[in-house]
């Protein structure tokens, strides 16, 4: 194999690895953002002071919902996406 082509392939792989890292960071970053919000504005979580609160005030907990969205993305979307990214990377390398 030509050394120049190998270096190009390496650069492309490094770029794709960066993309995989970026995708896998989205969920945890969202979770951290939700947790940080919960610490900065704990009064937005009415579950911490539930007495006298109605259903909606106990059900809708924005910082916790942000955390849940992050978890769902990290567990439900990101793993398959990273897998497909690796498969595409392998296809491109084979071509």
């Amino acid at each position: 194999m030509n050394a120049e082509l190998a270096s190009q392939l390496k650069a492309r792989t490094a770029h794709r690895t960066a993309r995989a890292r970026a995708v896998s960071a989205l969920g945890p970053l969202t979770i951290v953002a939700g947790l940080a919000w919960a610490f900065v504005q704990p009064y937005r979580i009415t579950l911490l002071h539930p007495r006298g609160q109605g259903f909606w005030w106990l059900f809708v907990e924005p910082p916790l919902w942000v955390v849940v969205v992050g978890i769902l993305f990290a567990l439900g979307v990101a793993p398959g996406l990273i897998e497909d990214l690796a498969a595409e990377e392998a296809d491109a390398a084979a071509r």
């Binding site: 993309r19 995708v23 942000v66 969205v69 993305f73 979307v77 996406l81 497909d84 595409e88």
Partner: peptide, 28 residues
């Protein structure tokens, strides 16, 4: 706030699609 959560879901999906490209995103 409920709609905000919906927009957050949309934003994350679209951000992931922007990162990996539409071909990889559409593999499944």
């Amino acid at each position: 706030w409920m709609f905000a959560t919906g927009f957050l879901v949309l934003g994350l999906c679209l951000l992931a699609e922007a990162i990996v490209g539409p071909e990889v995103w559409g593999r499944r």
